[in-house]
Deep mutational scan, measured.
Amino acid sequence: LSDEDFKAVFGMTRSAFANLPLWKQQNLKKEKGLF
Rank of each mutant, 00 (worst) to 15 (best):
G11C: 08
N27A: 14
S15V: 07
F10P: 01
D3Y: 05
K30H: 08
N19P: 01
N27F: 14
A18P: 01
E31R: 07
G11E: 07
A8I: 11
T13K: 07
M12A: 01
S2V: 04
E31Q: 11
D3P: 15
D5Y: 04
D5W: 06
L1M: 14
K32C: 06
M12Q: 04
W23A: 15
Q25M: 02
F6M: 08
N27R: 11
P21W: 00
W23S: 14
L20V: 03
F17I: 01
G33D: 10
D5L: 05
E31M: 06
F6Q: 00
R14C: 02
E4L: 15
D3K: 14
A8M: 10
M12G: 01
Q25S: 03
D5N: 14
F6S: 03
F17E: 02
E31D: 05
S2N: 15
F6R: 01
Q26T: 13
D3W: 04
L20Q: 06
R14Y: 02
S2L: 10
F35D: 13
K24F: 08
Q25F: 00
V9C: 07
A18N: 13
D5V: 02
S2Q: 08
N27I: 04
R14A: 06
L22C: 09
N19A: 12
F35I: 14
K7Q: 13
F35P: 15
D5M: 12
P21S: 05
Q25A: 04
L34N: 13
T13P: 08
F10T: 08
G33N: 12
L1V: 08
N19Q: 13
A8L: 10
F10H: 01
R14I: 02
A16V: 08
A18Y: 04
K32D: 03
P21R: 00
F17G: 03
F10Y: 12
P21F: 00
Q26R: 09
Q26D: 14
L28C: 06
E31G: 06
L28Q: 02
N27K: 13
L22S: 13
S15A: 05
A18Q: 10
A16G: 08
F17H: 05
G33R: 09
K32A: 09
Q25P: 00
D5K: 11
G33T: 12
F10Q: 01
A8G: 07
V9W: 04
D3F: 00
E31T: 07
T13S: 14
T13E: 15
S15G: 09
P21K: 02
K30L: 06
E4A: 05
L20T: 01
Q25R: 05
A18R: 06
D3I: 10
L20E: 02
M12S: 03
V9L: 12
E31P: 03
N19Y: 09
K32P: 02
G11A: 07
K30I: 11
M12L: 08
E4P: 12
L34W: 12
K7E: 11
K32L: 05
E4Y: 15
K7D: 03
A8V: 07
M12W: 04
T13C: 07
K29L: 10
F17D: 02
L34T: 14
K7F: 09
T13G: 10
L22K: 02
E4I: 15
R14W: 02
A18E: 15
L28D: 00
K32T: 08
N19L: 13
G11V: 00
K29W: 06
K32W: 03
L34V: 12
A8H: 10
E31K: 05
L28M: 07
G11D: 04
L20P: 00
S2P: 01
W23N: 15
A16Y: 04
